[in-house]
Write a protein that binds this DNA or RNA. Structure first.
Lengths: 119, 119
DNA sequence: CTAGAACCTGACACTGATGTCAGGATCAAG
DNA sequence: CTTGATCCTGACATCAGTGTCAGGTTCTAG
C-alpha cells in the first residue's frame, strides 16, 4: 500500500512515516517511479512503533528492539545482546516508575475535579 | 531555604526551579540582596510539580491546577472553573490512555527480555 | 494525452523543558 | 576586609519528533 493509505489507517502522518524510515524503523519497497510501497504488516508495525514512542523510548532503542520482537513480519526473531537486554531492563524500570507517577497524578486530578463538582 | 538546598533536596536543577518561577508555579521570598528564600513547603510543591510534568501536563495547565489543590501551603483551595474541569478531565483521560499504552509497551519489553534470557 | 491527485526530497521552524555559559553581585566565615 | 561558595539575570543551545512549504515527479482515471 502507499504512504497515504498507511497514514490514514494508522493515524500517523506521512511526515512521521518517512522519518521512521530514515531512522531504520520501517522499510518499504519502491515502485519503479520511486513511490513507497508498504506490505500489509506495516500497519501493525507502525502502531507498535507509536506505542513505544509513547512509552518514551527513542528511535535508536526502538530500532534495536524491533528485530528482537516476534511477529516481526513472521521472520525469525533476532536475539537481544546482553547489552541491549540491560538497556531494555532499564527502560522497563523507567516505565514502571512512570506508571506509578501517572497513577499519582491521575489521583491528583481526580481530587480537583471532584472538589469542583461540589462533593 | 536557598535555591541550592531546594535543588539538592528535590533532585530538580536550579535552572528548572527558576524556570518554574517564571511560569508562576513556584514563588519565593527574597533576601535583601535578592536571593530566593523558599519556605519548607516548597519541597513538596516541587515534587508535586515534577510529577505533573512527568504526567505530560504543561506548565500553563499546572499553573491553573496548583491553586485548586488542597495541601497548597495550608491555605484554602480555590475551586476549579468549569472550563478548567473540562481541561483536567481531558488530561485525566489522556493519562489513562497513556497508562494503558505503557503497560502494553512494558509487556513488549518483557517478552524480548525473557526471550533473550533463554526461556 | 491530460489533468489532478498523490508522492518525492530537502530544508527550515517549532515546541517546551532543561543545559550551559558569561559577567557580575551577595553571603558567610575567617 | 577578604575569600570562596553561592546566587543573580540573560542569552543561546539542545533534543527529537513533528509540521509545513517549495519545487518537482509519478501515478491513474478519463
Amino acid at each position: 500500500m502507499r504512504i497515504g493509505e498507511l497514514a490514514r489507517r494508522t493515524g500517523v502522518s506521512e511526515r512521521s512515516l518517512r522519518y521512521y524510515e530514515t531512522q531504520g524503523l520501517l522499510r518499504a519497497e519502491r515502485t519503479p517511479g520511486g513511490h513507497r510501497d508498504y506490505p500489509e504488516a506495516a500497519v501493525d508495525r507502525v502502531i507498535r512503533i507509536q506505542e513505544l514512542f509513547a512509552a518514551g523510548l527513542r528511535s535508536t532503542k526502538i530500532a534495536q528492539l524491533l528485530p528482537c520482537m516476534r511477529d516481526d513480519d513472521g521472520g525469525p526473531s533476532a536475539v537481544a545482546t546482553p547489552r541491549l537486554v540491560a538497556d531494555l531492563t532499564a527502560e522497563r524500570d523507567r516505565i514502571d516508575r512512570t506508571i506509578r507517577d501517572l497513577l499519582r497524578s491521575r489521583d491528583t486530578l481526580d481530587e480537583v475535579i471532584e472538589a469542583a463538582q461540589g462533593r
